[in-house]
Amino acid sequence: MRASTQVMAAGIILEPIESATASATAGRVREVAAQEFSSIVQTHRPQIFRFLLASTRDVDLAETLTQECFLKAHRNWDRFRGESSAMTWLMRIAINLQKDHWRNRRLQFWRHTQNNAVDAGEASEWLPSGERSVEQQMMAREQVQQVWKAVEGLSARQKTVFLLRYVEDMELKEVAQVTGLNEGTVKAHLSRALAKVRAELRGTR
């Protein structure tokens, strides 16, 4: 009788200590997850923004979609199993958001939607400041403009594949993972996209 009373008393005393420990552990786990996510944002935000900027050629829209991408990623962070790299996961979210955006925009045909996308000429103004002659810079600018024109004529999927491969320098396997296509399809899209770029560069398009 006395022994059981002691055990019960010990249980009553231990219970709050255990729950306090559990809550402290949960808090620590949350803190670690937040830090981890923060570091993911720091690392990958420029790349996601760059891809969305190249896809939309609209700085404000790219910024908005980037924010939405990380907001969505944050909401689903606990579901990220690490089966693919964080970059692949984030890029997949970005591509889906972009698709949703264009789909919604098509439905908004009756509404005046603001379009801040810059044209190919304006987009090609950006060149890294290297040691190039004026002539070389002009040629480079012309080439960039031609590539932008070719990109304008690509289908949404061809464009995504092309940008992931030639702007983000992704391997075919990574592109396939991000887009959810198989490697053969990625190669086919890429080949068609390159044919269009080549034709634009030759001036035969």
Binding site: P46, F49, R50, L53, A54, V59, A62, A123, S124, W126, L127, P128, A140, Q143, V144, Q146, V147, W148, Y166, V167, D169, L194, V197, R198, L201, R202
Partner: peptide, 24 residues
Amino acid sequence: ADAVLDEALKNFQSSVHAWSEAEF
């Protein structure tokens, strides 16, 4: 032609990177 294409793609990539960095 391939050399021109490679150069154009390289310039395109540099241009997008420069634009993105400036805007970011």
